[in-house]
């Protein structure tokens, strides 16, 4: 079976490299080892979303039973999204679980993840905190996602207000990422975030 996996990945690797999405810089695939068991994917944040302008790096592990079982994929770049864990980068997406089909490819996976960035499914959350914010205050969610894209994925849209609040917490001795998580979780309410961090 491992033989089929390597054979398939080799073929898919070429397929992605040649695809038109690569030409448009929308998706990218790199080998991490020479056994075709681990790859590094990259997707561009879709236009007209909070992720626009960001580049998101993915860890792709190919199981021995590939393509009969799906690849194991997670975000390495930190991201604020209801279906992606802001802590571990774990993804909740049906085709990476029971809706996987052996005829699907890594290209399908990358494009589906990109589609997931355009259309979140808050009713099937991976990150409960993000999903709640998405449902209760979608504007706050967009602002936060855009800020994370700027902070971690090289997105162009900086938000001075957010940066200022983070700096206030960093000055109090809080680690930057921890400060960002607390503020993001409390809708950028500095007082409540502080309370939580020091409780």
């Amino acid at each position: 079976m491992a033989n089929i996996a390597a054979q398939r990945i080799k073929r898919e690797f070429k397929e992605v490299i040649r695809s038109e999405e690569v030409a448009k810089c929308a998706i990218k695939l790199d080998l991490v080892d020479n056994n075709y068991t681990e790859l590094r994917g990259e997707i561009a944040g879709p236009p007209d979303t909070a992720y626009e302008g960001g580049n998101f790096v993915l860890e792709i592990k190919v199981p021995e039973t590939y393509p009969f079982n799906p690849p194991k994929v997670r975000f390495i770049t930190k991201i604020w999204h209801p279906n992606i864990s802001s802590v571990t980068g774990a993804i909740c997406l049906d085709i990476l679980k029971d809706q996987w089909a052996a005829a699907m490819t890594l290209r399908t996976v990358l494009l589906s993840l990109q589609a997931l960035l355009s259309a979140a499914e808050p009713d099937d959350p991976q990150d409960a905190v993000v999903a709640r914010q998405y449902k209760e205050n979608v504007e706050m969610f967009r602002l936060t996602a855009r800020h994370w894209t700027n902070a971690y994925a090289g997105g162009p849209n900086a938000n001075p207000e957010c940066d200022e609040k983070i700096k206030r917490l960093v000055d109090m001795g809080i680690e930057e990422h921890q400060a960002r998580v607390a503020l993001s979780s409390y809708n950028w309410d500095l007082e409540r975030a502080t309370e939580q961090l020091f409780s």
Binding site: I4, Q7, R8, R11, P67, F68, A102, A103
Partner: peptide
């Protein structure tokens, strides 16, 4: 209808 065909799963 062709006689040879590439299996989409094992690409053989």
């Amino acid at each position: 209808t062709s006689n040879y065909y590439t299996c989409p799963v094992c690409v053989t």
